[in-house]
Design a binder for these strands. Structure first.
Lengths: 250, 250
DNA sequence: CGTTATTGTAACAATATGTTACAATAGTAA
DNA sequence: TTACTATTGTAACATATTGTTACAATAACG
């Protein structure tokens, strides 16, 4: 979320660059809904501002000469440590009712930053929403140097979020559901190798409904985008499932 | 497009409000791809700045306390005279390479406006793209008071457009194609009553490929969203087609 | 080895879509 | 009135996709 930026910077910069917003586009932010998958659950990466008890999406601003998409990549990489992430712009949030400077004021106060009423961070912001799908096992949630946390939260048990961040997440999930079949993005939530059961549980969790095993398997194999890698010995008393790998047929 | 705004205002305002950008969000614009349908062709509403020979999408800025979506509605209504339009945000364009102040400089010069290099209209802009589907027969393309034109252009014969407006149109069409079945938006391009042939030609034109008549008709009727209104006597020597009407089953 | 639980897949059913064909019919002209 | 023409509405069948059931294959366990 917006706040993340001022904590992205060394302290000098907060009183310097962030003071007048120089170097960034004003009134515009990027927020990222970073999805992970673990234990048959969708997870979302959230930042916590302990002083204020506020939770927020990781986000930031656009540098004066930076591509919007590059800003999004930078923000997601900053939080996950990952490169080559599946990242997709899904909606731009511009309701005036989004505007609520109180949480930002509280945080700046807690940080000991003097904020005049017309401080750029206290103005209205329009936010471009990006959704990211990452391999939960590879991501390294990284908080800022300054005392906030960055952790995975279960999508079904989200804390109360700042501003309209909850509806940003809802819209991201909705987008994911609508484009899942079309774009075949589900793989991005899994490690490189996975079983058909893993993949099905990703689909079921995203769509929020059970799928028919035989039909799902037939369809996925029929797409010709799965490559059989090996058997996976689970240690359980039944047939071992195969491990598959996603192959991009260009 | 961006430029449209300064021509939306009476002359005093240009030297007043538009001068420092007060009353608008800075660095953010809305551009609208307004689609119409006529003679089996998709049309797009474009503005022409005669002094400079530049063509552009209708667009504008977001007022300080205005919802982003309301700004888009305002901009489209301003150009078409229509209310209750199908309007959909489709993408936000934020590449730095979009930034090119020369056309704006030229236009301001032609208007006799002195523009210092740091004028807000000469800074970098990020644009939220909206697509609108309107009834070609009802729209009333409306240029500004100040000497530019506003007309329909055939999508297959677009003039050279300012900045990246051509790729904005391309992306809008792409979005339309991908969501046509899902969202059933094709009706918005037709008058309230239409024949199955009319509807099919809308679909064929948007998708850019012929559809099978029998299958198309069966599917459309099967959706249960068409209401039979009357017969349409075409004056031709063959069976008269039915007129249908779109009904929103809520 | 049998038992157990799960996987891979075949087989059939139901649904959706592609294709062909034909009856219905508004205008035209004998 | 009555053929004739071109297009519409729809049935009928073929093919493709998806839903459903069933069953063989098999890794671990006793």
């Amino acid at each position: 979320m917006i706040l993340a930026v001022i904590f992205n910077m060394p302290k000098e910069v907060i009183t310097e660059e962030a003071k007048d917003g120089k170097g960034f586009m004003l009134g515009l932010a990027v927020d990222a809904v970073i999805f992970g998958f673990h234990d048959r659950q969708l997870k979302v990466l959230l930042l916590e501002y302990k002083q204020t008890g506020l939770f927020a999406l990781p986000g930031g601003f656009i540098r004066t000469k930076e591509n919007l998409n590059d800003a999004a990549t930078r923000i997601v990489t900053r939080r996950t440590g990952l490169h080559n992430i599946y990242l997709q712009q899904f909606y731009t949030f511009g309701d005036y009712s989004r505007y609520d400077p109180t949480p930002m004021k509280a945080i700046m106060n807690a940080k000991g930053i003097k904020a005049p009423a017309d401080h750029w961070l206290l103005q209205r912001f329009i936010t471009v929403g990006y959704l990211a799908l990452v391999d939960f096992t590879k991501a390294l949630p990284t908080p800022d140097a300054i005392s906030d946390s960055c952790r995975w939260y279960d999508l079904n048990a989200l804390p109360v979020l700042m501003q309209d961040h909850r509806s940003i997440i809802d819209k991201a999930l909705e987008t994911l559901q609508l484009t899942l079949d079309q774009k075949l993005t589900g793989f991005n939530l899994l490690p490189e190798q996975f079983t058909m059961g893993d993949l099905q549980s990703v689909y079921e969790t995203i769509l929020g409904k059970p799928l028919i095993r035989a039909a799902f398997q037939r369809k996925m194999l029929g797409l010709g985008i799965l490559e059989l890698v090996a058997k996976k010995m689970t240690g359980k008393a039944h047939k071992a499932p195969y491990l598959y790998r996603f192959i991009n047929k260009t």
